[in-house]
Design a binder for these strands. Sequence first.
RNA 1: GGGAGCGUAGCUCAGAUUGGUUAGAGCGCAUGCCUGUCACGCAUGAGGUCGCGAGUUCGAUCCUCGUCGUUCCCGCCA
Length: 530
Amino acid sequence: MEKVRTEFVITVKGKITKRPPETYNEKYATGQVEMYPEHLEILSDCKVLPFVLEDENVSEDVRLKYRYLDLRREKMLHNLQTRHNICQAARKYLNDLDFLEVETPVLIKTTPEGARDYLVPSRVQEGKFYALPQSPQIYKQLLMVGGIERYYQIAKCFRDEDLRADRQPEFTQIDMEMSFVEQQDVIRVVEGLIKETFKAAGVEVQTPFIQMPWQEAMDKYGSDKPDTRFGLELFDIGDIILQSEFHIVRDTLEKGGIVRGIRIPGGAKYSRKDIDDITKLAVSYGAKALANIIYNEDGTAKSPVLKFVTEEQAKQIKERAQAQNGDIIFFVADKPKAVYDIMGRLRLHFGKSLNLIDENKHNLLWVVDFPMFEWSDEENRFMAMHHPFTSPNLNDLDKLDSGDLGNVKSIAYDIVYNGTELGGGSVRIHSSVVQQKIFKALGLTEEEAQEKFGFMVNALQYGTPPHAGLAIGLDRMVALLCHTESIRDVIAFPKNSGAKDLMSDAPGEASIKQLRELHIKSTLQPQHQH
RNA sequence: GGGAGCGUAGCUCAGAUUGGUUAGAGCGCAUGCCUGUCACGCAUGAGGUCGCGAGUUCGAUCCUCGUCGUUCCCGCCA
């Protein structure tokens, strides 16, 4: 008996008896009984643990190295249990709606567009490579062509990009697709799915959810995943500035820029240093400058900007901002994308730092009417905002033909939960002609499109039902519902931020023999090779 | 690719005003005592390349540079 230590695995036989009432321990379910052991057997002993399991405050690299011990903690078990409950609820809900769970391949062909692919060298096909899927996108659409009608899969996806607390190189999506449906059909089904999965995690939500056009989300919140748990909505003062002598901002506006402001209640009390710090923050978000107007308690306005705007215009701005005496407003003028980004982040900063976020809220909303394309300065071309198989809004087909790509809307929709994108989807292109147009708009020649996506375009020519779908980021959803910042806390064996598995030490070296079989030769300098 | 933080005992951390001779605490661990205790208590004890390398200095856990590890963020993530 005295040999038994922490985390030993034992069997004990004996009589269980009621304890004297004064010795009850209410902390444990078994606190009113005890056993007098008659026979004890040690099935496994246990070395001294590298950390105390009850210690909440162990650094993550230690936890990850001994993940099998970390998983013994109550919280980790709870997280995995919640994940299981959510998956089971999703399966039940979708099964009941006659969705078919189908597995799609993990060794597929590399595709341009999107994230960097994980590559797998082929031994049999010399010099060729598979890619791991970034999502089952193409295959689920081919299932629709194949007449499956309703598909889902809890699918592993792989993207070889840098990691974050909410991004792992391999992650899981609840992926689904339906034939003969439109956007509102998918939205209705997914709202039910969200309701059921949230319920499985103990959160009740009301359907339907608000549907907010992308433009409204950007205008009010500076984000395509607005956190509506707090106000501080942005406002437009472009028309007022245009009447003023504020030439720098007017020039920006006349070149297609925009100006947006945010009102901070009670901000008139900010010191010069406070405002400097906020300005620095805005600059770190990419702002060239951050203007402010203080509305004093006595009703006067104070701002360097007053050199350029009249008293009347300052008053108009105050009205537009719905500012009270004692408030401060900040505003930024730049290209739309920059302004949205800066102001959106600033809004989140204030929401957090001013404690405006009610953590008990569960705000779910749809963002709809996304732009189809997004200009990439880096690639010097338009890129698909969602993905290349997203259907453009049929009213915008003429813009597609005339090359007015910046104004083409797509039939895409994102589901947003408390300022986090939970998932997204779209109505897909079911016409090979439209699909070709999109490839062309994305800068792919007909030959390239044929080489990369030929099988897809071909398939679309054989009687493709209209179809639409969506995928939910399972890890992110579970993490939010488990109230944890990092999706690593809801994945049994995650990678660290360097994409390494600290437990197994993957990725590891490959032997010369393995490389030779795969027809692979490293480009690393010899001293870096194994 | 870039920025920021951290790295001291098995774990979590402290370590001065400007660098000084013997680097501490709690938990854990070991041994003993106690035994209605149950996150027991008491006593004693073991446990340190202060991440690594170089530099500055009479002297570096402390300062400088580099490097490695780790976390967060930006870029990137259709």
